[in-house]
Each structure stands twice: as structure tokens, then as C-alpha cells.
Amino acid sequence: MTLGLYTAGDSWLHRLFPITKLIFSLSAIAIIFGGPNKWLSAILPGVISILILWSAGIAWRALKLIVQLLTPIAVILFIVHGFFGPANHQILMRLGPFVLGQEGLMYASLIVVRLVSTLASSLLLVTSTHPGSLIQALEQTGLSRKLVYLLGSPLLLLPQMARRIQTIRSAQQSRGLETQGNLLQRIKALFPLVAPLVFSALVDVEERSLALEVRGFSAPTPKTNLTEIPDTTKQQVLRWGMIVIAVCFLVFEFWRKRNGYD
């Protein structure tokens, strides 16, 4: 069963306390964009994430998603920066009137690597954690339920949204809307598809909030939990460790820049 990006399983990664995975992803992203040694900071978290995903047996799905999502972006980045990068100096190749520059190519590569790493470390969390468990774990940390719901509901409603987009497209096609074809046609088709999505979501939100109210969502009583998602001291230590490492990296990089080492 897949719910959004979540892939069911029973690996050690699946069993980890969701917050541990969340902290991992957040620390990884902090290091990817703010760590010292741009290339190493960009590559290492990605490699570690993929190794972890591999040991949990869900690396293929993650890699496929990364390739699917990033290929078009990568192509655009390479073309834009490779041929038109403002820092281009060293010429690698000429293609008619266009010149491929080394600096632009390197810059595009860095961005792509960073994106791959970011996606890999986020997928580590998302593909191995049921949205419900993530939400429950967040509640266990003592965050207010309303805040947690606000953060979590987009994730939870994703599969429903996907289904609805499909229905809206069918309904409008049945009214003669051409959704295929050239770019202009597709752009014209966008509004009839998006507007009903927003409207029907608004109708739903009202009903949803009523349903939550009558189930005591804002009842003035202390909350309890049927089950606790198990956390361990080891994981707590691990989480603090990851936070400390990420902060150290960021501080070190900040200090290096301030003292003009770049």
C-alpha cells in the first residue's frame, strides 16, 4: 500500500522514531546548503542518505523519484548556466554562436548535486514514515495538536488531492476542454483545472473542521495517546548529536566567511 510517497515496510529505518528521521533530514539540509567545503557538504549527506535507504531496501524507489523529478530541472540548469553563466571564462566547447563555459557548468553541477542530496535526505523520512506516525510523533513531543495538524494535513491530503485532480480533468474534458496539445493550450486549460480544485478543497475544509470539533479537537482537556511510538535514549543521543554536528558546521562556515577565508 502506498500513501503518497510512503512505502510500507518493516526495516530498521521504518521502525526508527520519526523525529529521529526528521532531525536527520533537517540537519542534512542545513549542511548541504551551509556547510564548509561546498562540494563535500553537498555530496556527503546525499551519499549517506542513499546508503541508509539502500540498507532499508527502499533505495530504488527513491532513486527513481529523484531521477524523474530532477532530470528536467538539471537539463535546464546545465543549459542556462553552461551557455549563459555570468562567470563563464574558461571555454570548453563552441556550438555555433553558443559557448559552453566551465564555470557555469560547475555551478550548475553544484546546484544539481545539492538538489539530489536534499531530495535523498527528505525521501529518507517521507518514504519510510507513514504520515500518521510522523504526526503522532510530533504530538508526542508536546507540540500543540492544532499546529501539528496544520503542518501535517497537506501531507495527509495529498493522495486525496491527486485523485481529485484526475476527476476534475475528466469532468472538464467531457465538457470539451482540450488538455493535451501545445503549450498555449495547456496553459489555457490550467484555470478550469485549478479553480475547482481550490473550491472543492475549501468546501471540504469547512466540513473537516466541523468533524474535528465534534471529536474534541479543541476540547479543553489534557490529551492522551492510545499508543506511544517507541523512542529510545540512544536515538535521543543520536538526535542531539546530529543537531550539534550541523550547528558546528554552520558556525564554522560562518566564522570562516567572516574572517575572509573564501
Binding site: 507513514h130 504520515p131 500518521g132 506516525s133 504526526i135 503522532q136 495538524y149 501535517g152 494535513s153 495527509l156 491530503l157 486525496q160 471540504d204 466540513e207 473537516r208 468533524a211 474535528l212 471529536r215
Partner: peptide, 9 residues
Amino acid sequence: TNQISEMRY
């Protein structure tokens, strides 16, 4: 559909 919180497994 709107009455299920979807917050649970």
C-alpha cells in the same frame, strides 16, 4: 471522507 481525520494509521 471529510469526517476521517487521516491523522492515524
